[in-house]
Design a protein around this nucleic acid. Structure first.
Length: 254
DNA sequence: ATGCCTCAGCTCCTGAGA
């Protein structure tokens, strides 16, 4: 079984690339973030045509998440139960016996801003909900665009970017608290290339210079760690014409 | 360097992303 996450920065623009990528990488589950379209505009037929079922939770202009899967998705949850939120950021379902949570974590913009405070509230609510989900679903994966780096290894310029957004102690403490529920950073379970990032700024030839950050993550429970065979960042789509600024991350289970 | 791209939209600029 393979599961993947990819922030595609507009499904309208990137649909052909998603279809191409699925043709080359026929994963069992693909979580998408930043659809940037309303539910009525979701191209369900395009996915049905290539053998994928879809769950989606869109929003005008910003955010929006989807779960594509070969097998049916059941017990679907949208956003964090009990957490009032105008923004479409979370989609959860059970697929092939695995509880899958796809999430687009808030960006946070800048420490001290209202958006940063929202990010902190959102992280706390997510953690408590994931704790409850883990209690009833030993096989659980939490994957998506976290908008947080774990540590300096995830950052191309750790000194220059110290305590800036995605790299603050406060964000990393929240991320560690989520890990502390009993989850594992799947990428770090396996040998990786040096400077292994999942996002590169569109500006200043950042991808070519590999000036990036690893902010897209797949966290898995003990039961899934026992099944994990590989976890890689696929930089191939970042080389496309008009790419997303993010690359997919792919987890292989037995 | 409040810069550099890219995308959506009350679209020929602005807000937001990261």
């Amino acid at each position: 079984m393979q599961l993947a996450t990819w922030n595609i920065n507009s499904l309208n623009v990137r649909l052909p690339q998603v279809l191409d990528w699925l043709a080359a990488n026929p994963v069992d589950v693909l979580a998408l973030q930043e659809l940037k379209l309303t539910d009525d505009k979701f191209p369900v037929q395009a996915f049905t045509d290539i053998g994928y079922q879809a769950q989606w939770f869109g929003q005008k202009t910003y955010n929006g998440v989807a779960l594509l899967s070969k097998a049916p998705a059941t017990d679907v949850v949208k956003n964090i139960p009990g957490f009032e939120d105008e923004q479409s950021r979370v989609l959860c379902a059970t697929i092939d016996g695995v509880r899958v949570i796809g999430a687009y974590f808030p960006n946070g913009q800048e420490p001290g801003s209202d958006k940063f405070a929202y990010k902190m509230r959102w992280l706390e609510a997510l953690r408590e909900w994931v704790r409850a989900e883990m209690a009833s679903h030993p096989q659980l994966v939490l994957m998506g665009d976290y908008n947080i780096t774990f540590d300096d290894l995830d950052v191309w310029d750790p000194e220059g970017l110290r305590e800036t957004i995605h790299c603050t102690t406060e964000e990393r403490t929240h991320l560690q608290a989520i890990v502390g529920l009993g989850l594992h950073d799947a990428v770090r379970l396996f040998d990786q290339p040096e400077k292994n990032y999942s996002w590169w700024d569109y500006r200043d030839f950042a991808f070519r210079r590999n000036r990036g950050m690893r902010i897209d993550h797949i966290l898995i429970t003990d039961a899934l760690k026992a099944r994990a065979l590989a976890c890689v960042v696929d930089k191939t789509p970042r080389k496309n014409e008009r790419p997303s600024d993010h690359a997919p991350v792919v987890l292989t289970l037995d």
